[in-house]
């Protein structure tokens, strides 16, 4: 199952400049493993040993996975993932 993933500006160096990529996986964790295969280095920017990094939010649709099941959050057909990192510019 291919899921659309929106890549923020700060991570596009890892996706060859693409702002949207697709990845496969039944859960958010599995999807990140698949992302890593095609875009090495991205996993480290999203997760650490404790789970989703605390300065990045992963949304399935409008919902933050931290308030769902974290990396275990199941994905279904049609879901879209948004990666929303903390930014500070003003």
């Amino acid at each position: 199952m291919a899921t659309k993933v929106r890549i923020p500006a700060s991570l596009r160096t890892l996706t060859g400049g693409k702002d949207e990529v697709t990845a496969a996986g039944d859960t958010v964790g599995a999807l990140i493993e698949d992302l890593e295969k095609n875009h090495p280095g991205i996993k480290d920017r999203l997760v650490d040993e404790k789970g989703v990094r605390r300065f990045v939010n992963l949304y399935v649709g409008e919902e933050d996975v931290r308030f769902l099941d974290g990396l275990g959050t199941p994905l279904k057909a049609g879901d879209e993932i948004s990666i929303v990192p903390a930014i500070a510019g003003g």
Binding site: S10, R45, R53, R54, F55, V56, N57, P85, A86, I87, A88, G89, G90
Partner: peptide
């Protein structure tokens, strides 16, 4: 609640380092 911790400085380039579209702000 949104971002419990800041990114480490090397992962958080500022606009001074990374640029910003002038109209965006």
């Amino acid at each position: 609640c949104l971002y419990p911790e800041p990114p480490p400085p090397h992962l958080a380039p500022s606009c001074q380092e990374a640029g910003v579209l002038g109209i965006l702000p």
